[in-house]
Design a protein around this nucleic acid. Structure first.
Length: 267
DNA sequence: ATGACGATCCCAGATCGA
């Protein structure tokens, strides 16, 4: 059976409920993982999504910042939310659903952005990002056990040169510095994760999922980065049938600065 | 590289995003 998983940094789910609805109607993903919902669990707009069949929702929210939520057409066999770096930040939620091919766990992450200065001794946010990546690596290594597992979200790192508009000009910009890209590539290696997006859209094709709000014309300048990712265990990756980046969503009304990424599997 | 933007808190501007 085709089984699709979408990930989208929505930058406030309350403000952008209409375009989330638009995505759900147009694409009907089995699972939608949202990041930066920017609200508490009790503020999450459940009703409209339930009307479209998304009656199963796992939320890890907080006031004002961060926050992740996973919407599903299928019931959850289990849910889990994990803290990282000893903080209360709402940056992870996991759901397990039963597919024809067996149970599948989908982990939804919002990795710290890291602030402006790419030096952990000068910038606590960058230090936090690096220690989060260390814990994320260990987390992934423990889960490299052959079970069906997909890890998605806004990782806030563009790991490869073709994941940014200019490798050279971004080498000292947080999201593409060597210390970050090395850490993410190592996390991928240690956990035996497959980069499902790049499996289907291989380098050297440029693939971006985020464009700044500050550009006069985001599409014309096209200074994007690939910050949003879909990883899976090798067996699940072997069942993946396609990936799409919904670039058009960057021009939907009141857009997020990120666009949805959707992977389809035969499960 | 920075930031011409845009979000949160609840009403004013500080803080965050990347």
């Amino acid at each position: 059976m085709p089984f699709s998983i979408a990930t989208w940094n929505i930058n406030s789910v309350r403000l952008r409920e209409p375009i989330v609805t638009r995505l759900l109607k147009a694409e009907k993903p089995d699972i939608l993982c949202l990041q930066e919902i920017k609200c508490r669990e009790d503020q999450f707009p459940l009703k409209g999504f339930a009307k479209l069949g998304y009656t199963h929702v796992a939320i890890h929210g907080q006031t004002g910042y961060h926050g992740v939520a996973t919407l599903s057409r299928h019931p959850f066999a289990a849910t889990e939310r994990q803290g990282f770096c000893g903080k209360d930040d709402a940056r992870h939620v996991a759901v397990t659903v039963d597919t024809k091919a067996g149970p599948l766990t989908i982990d939804n992450f919002y990795i710290p952005s890291g602030g402006d200065i790419p030096d952990p001794s000068e910038n606590d946010k960058f230090a936090h990002k690096l220690s989060f990546l260390e814990e994320f690596t260990a987390w992934g290594a423990e889960r490299a056990n052959g079970a069906g597992r997909v890890a998605v979200g806004d990782f806030n790192i563009a790991p490869h040169p073709d994941d940014v508009w200019s490798h050279k000009q971004l080498l000292k910009v947080v999201s593409h510095t060597p210390v970050e890209t090395d850490a993410l590539n190592r996390a991928q290696e240690v956990g035996s994760w497959r980069d499902v997006v790049r499996d289907h859209l291989p380098v050297p094709e440029k693939v971006f999922t985020w464009w700044s709000y500050r550009a006069r014309d985001w599409s014309a300048s096209n200074r994007g980065r690939r910050l949003d990712h879909i990883w899976s265990d090798p067996a699940t990756a072997g069942r993946s049938t396609g990936v799409r980046v919904l670039r058009d969503a960057r021009d939907w009304p009141k857009p997020s600065d990120h666009v949805p990424v959707i992977a389809t599997f035969d499960l």
